[in-house]
């Protein structure tokens, strides 16, 4: 926990909604290039933690450091994938993906275009480049939003329930895409999920969040083994994580009952 070389460092961070401290004096460090899965009960504060890390909201006390720089406002190099995606109805897939790049660089029109097409191809949505969001399927929208987030090559990627809103088949292909991109870019990644399988498939370290934002880490030795979804060991790992979570929940209950 007291890792000095950590890429992301939270020290004594608190955030409250009214009287309730959703995050209470949380200290946490995340290593560079590692993928973290964040699991926890609904309403426990996962999205709040993500918003703090993105710089959308500021801690009431304590500080967040990214790359040893104190976070005060959203960084260009932090990518955020929203659960509702947030694609603008007036932007075609091409325009959506182009926007972040166009905003922050002064590159020529032609090289902008080729970067966008590189990502369209990478996420297998080339055919959709002229379509508006209402002309795209759920999975295609997800890919457009992912490309829009990845095109600026973020060194820190936050995703709030990236696959909750899509069907099971599409879900697996999106997960595979995310995993492939993570391996390729070595991005530090923190994603929220309610799906233990997803946590075990995509997360190198699984973080369980409890009341007040307390976090327990579980390493995931299975992470990154090719096609690990087809092994019994994978499901054994899921079961282990599930047991771990239930144990943590019980701890929480004992804790709150003793209060």
């Amino acid at each position: 926990m007291k890792n000095k070389d950590a890429f992301i460092r939270l020290s004594d961070v608190s955030y409250r909604f009214g009287e309730r401290a959703v995050i209470n004096q949380l200290s946490l460090s995340l290593d560079k290039g590692v993928s973290y899965a964040l699991i926890g009960q609904s309403g426990i504060g996962k999205s709040t933690l993500l918003q703090l890390l993105a710089g959308f909201i500021s801690p009431d006390s304590g500080s967040i450091y990214i790359n040893d720089k104190k976070l005060i406002k959203p960084r260009v190099k932090t990518g955020f994938l929203f659960q509702e995606l947030g694609l603008f109805p007036w932007q075609t897939a091409f325009d959506s993906i182009k926007m972040p790049l166009q905003m922050h660089t002064s590159v020529q029109k032609e090289s902008l275009k080729s970067s966008v097409f590189k990502w369209l191809k990478e996420l297998q949505i080339e055919d959709c480049h002229e379509r508006y969001p209402h002309e795209l399927s759920g999975g295609q929208k997800q890919r457009v939003a992912l490309a829009r987030t990845l095109i600026t090559e973020p060194d820190f990627l936050l995703m709030d329930e990236p696959t909750t809103a899509i069907d099971a088949m599409t879900k697996e292909s999106i997960q595979a895409l995310i995993l492939a991109q993570h391996k390729k870019q070595q991005t530090t990644m923190l994603f929220v999920t309610h799906d233990i399988e997803e946590a075990v498939y995509l997360g190198e370290v699984i973080l369980i969040m409890r009341e007040g934002g307390k976090i327990t880490r579980i390493p995931n030795p299975l992470f990154g083994i090719e096609n690990n979804r087809e092994t019994l060991a994978f499901y054994q790992a899921c079961i282990d994580v599930r047991k771990h979570i239930n144990l943590e929940m019980e701890l929480d209950e004992v804790f709150t009952h003793n209060k």
Binding site: A54, F56, T78, F82, F88
Partner: peptide, 13 residues
């Protein structure tokens, strides 16, 4: 308001 948050996420001017 989520659209403004999207723009924030890209650290937009």
């Amino acid at each position: 308001s989520s659209y403004f948050t999207v723009m924030d996420s890209f650290a937009s001017s």
